[in-house]
Write a protein that binds this DNA or RNA. Structure first.
Lengths: 239, 239
DNA sequence: ACCACCTTTCACGATTGCGTTAATGGTGAC
DNA sequence: GTCACCATTAACGCAATCGTGAAAGGTGGT
């Protein structure tokens, strides 16, 4: 019958502890990478984040104590993965809100018409790329990597791909992976990479929805794209 | 082209700052109360949380600086509200994950068959009450309070109420509010209160889905309830 | 004009958290 | 067996954060 701030309250403690783990740039980014791109070894993570091994190790020890990541030792390597798939939902909710949400103390570069879409090598990135990935996952065409599945896999549905103008079964991947989840550098949410990602971008260009800007990584969303893309991608709002 | 940990990265900073705001028991609970039950004045909040005014004031100043709450002065009272409705989604995502999710360091009282449902005065609470509220909101029968709408209101849909066995238009509220959002003490998510909350509980008892335990606030979910409730309430899983 | 009340701010002490450096434990290659 | 490498832990110093107490602004009632 105690009030709201009972220090013994297990739910309150669990939520604040969780938030505290996510409140550090290294821990947050490590979780985002693991949740979006699947398991990494410690060296891969330290290299990707550009931090020293002990520094990352201390944070991973905290995450492990909090039950957020699991580690498996194999030889002299340690591969880390997210302990539960649900953490991706939490990270996505936080990130989405922080985007259009709370006024940050520092002035944020206003993402207007530019910055709406970018390319990452040869596939779509930026807000457009994230919307593509989210739409495909929501509709069962992709299953994102979680603690169990090591990598991004195709789901049972094919029609969401068809609506985007690509056919996964017809793509000649060659030596390249068919589809990979790639953590978007600006959005901090996963976007679609691999051979399928390239096909989607090509299809968008072919249909006149976006136009590459030669020499840059910017993608110009055309008038037609502003009209048709929101209907195609539920999570894609221009504002 | 800097790496993942660029200290200037606006998205990274926004997310970690947001998580830091949610990592304190007082700030988290204040946001949960404001998001679930609508605007409160400072005294109401301090009284509800059982903390001194300066202590709460310091935290509210932080939340205001972070853009998470808005304050409106009227006379010598200051009414606080959440700055954006979206924060409710973030709190719900965090709380849901922390429930069944990460293994807390401290042993959590295992919510088995008991603890599945409780009463709050005369309406359903606990996991069942939270599931009722979430289902009604998801299906457009209720619109939760956000920064703009001061209190819980009925949505356009009526069939979700009918499936639960109640008719909002036939309830004689009298002096009592028809429907209120009430932050659940154990779940930290809103449940349905007011006259409609009582009607839902009565209907559940009538249909033999739950049985009150005299003298306690526990609700025993019957065999029939375990069978039929999950179909009625998408968010209600027994495990 | 005075007082009661609500709200906000400030400053100090104690605590916690973080980064760096160094050292330890294991594992595989030669 | 020795060495190189990966991963982990421990200890120290620094900075940020939180709670407490006191005091200051402002408003409305008498």
């Amino acid at each position: 019958m105690s009030g709201w701030l009972d220090p013994e309250d297990p739910v309150l403690g669990a939520v604040t502890s969780l938030a505290r783990e996510l409140a550090d740039p290294i821990r947050l980014t490590a979780l985002q990478v693991l949740a979006a791109e699947g398991p990494h070894t410690m060296s891969q993570l330290a290299d990707a984040l550009g931090v020293s091994a002990p520094r990352l190790g201390n944070h991973l020890a905290r995450l492990r104590a909090a039950g957020l990541v699991a580690v498996e030792h194999s030889g002299r390597h340690a591969t880390y993965r997210v302990a539960e798939a649900g953490i991706g939902e939490v990270l996505a909710a936080l990130t989405r809100f922080a985007h259009g949400g709370a006024a940050d103390t520092r002035p944020r570069p206003r993402a207007g018409a530019q910055g709406l879409a970018r390319t990452c090598y040869d596939h779509t990135a930026g807000r457009l790329g994230v919307a593509v990935f989210a739409a495909l996952v929501d509709r069962g065409a992709l299953v994102p990597p979680d603690g169990r599945t090591a990598e991004l896999a195709l789901g049972p549905e094919r029609s969401p791909f068809a609506e985007l103008g690509v056919d996964p079964d017809a793509v000649r991947a060659g030596r390249r992976k068919l589809a990979t989840a790639c953590l978007d550098r600006t959005q901090r949410l996963p976007h679609l990479g691999g051979a399928l990602g390239k096909e989607v971008l090509d299809a968008f260009v072919e249909r006149g929805l976006v136009e590459p800007r030669p020499g840059t990584r910017d993608l110009q969303v055309t008038e037609r794209g502003l009209r048709e893309l929101p209907a195609l991608l539920p999570g894609f709002r221009s504002a």
